[in-house]
Amino acid sequence: MRNFARRFFSRPAAAAGFAVFALILFIALAAPLLFGHGPFSIVGVPLLPPGSPGLLAGSDVLGRDMMVGLAYGARVSLLVGIVSTLCATIIGVLLGAVAGYYGGVVDDLLMRVTEFFQIIPSFVLLMVLVSFLQPSLGSTILGIAMIGWPQMARVVRGEFLALRGREFVQAARILGESDLHIIFRQVLPNALPPIVAIGSMMVGSAILTESALSFLDLGDPNSLSWGSMISGSRSAMWVAWWTTVLPGLSILITVLSINFMGDGLNHALNPRRRER
């Protein structure tokens, strides 16, 4: 484990990504302690630029503190991004692994189900799902997981199809290992690089998708996210750039830091790179 950490942090990009992500996570978690008021309370004149007295990031169209909004927005955006990606990854890896490892009828069946999800325009499906379930944090997470897993399942299936023919898998069968053990202990570790890569992209796209939902007023009305901040400020975009640019920048930095961490994770997990 200590070795793993050393390998992970030996890459500057991964270390930087981790540091930035940890900072964002800290601000998100500590938001109620850091700020005396909630994200919805009005603290001053609308559209004050960043650096105005007491307003590090300025104020928005309603005169709310942008800094507090960004901190609370991080809570929602990160929660949605990470939880929905985890759900999508678990579903996608399980179905993809089973389809790819067993092949044949099982594969046909599972892939037809996957295709069913893929042929429906995913954002339309998401909108229908969320409005059907009433917009809330839970329905947003569920909806994003539902449109995310087919991509993961496809990739994992492909990896398993390629790997199951390898001789070490045959050797494991001959040694009498159970299918479960072969799938999770023999094959899955070799399929990790694309899973980690897609997973880290997915966190980013989930945050963006949540933003898009909020933009369409389909987000949770009781919580502020980076997306809903952009959505709510769009009318002021030309007169007060910080109202949209700052939440946008937050998304960008978060997604970038997660991608860097994903690269570092793959590097640290690969035994070929270990001695260096």
Partner: peptide
């Protein structure tokens, strides 16, 4: 299974690259 065993052709693909030699040899 334990009574019939096999040695494979490809020295590269017959060992799991993500397992240590110890794990590989004790797998059975």
């Amino acid at each position: 299974r334990r009574r019939i065993q096999m040695v494979f052709q490809d020295p590269f693909s017959s060992l799991n690259p993500r397992h240590t030699v110890g794990e590989i040899v004790t797998a059975g």
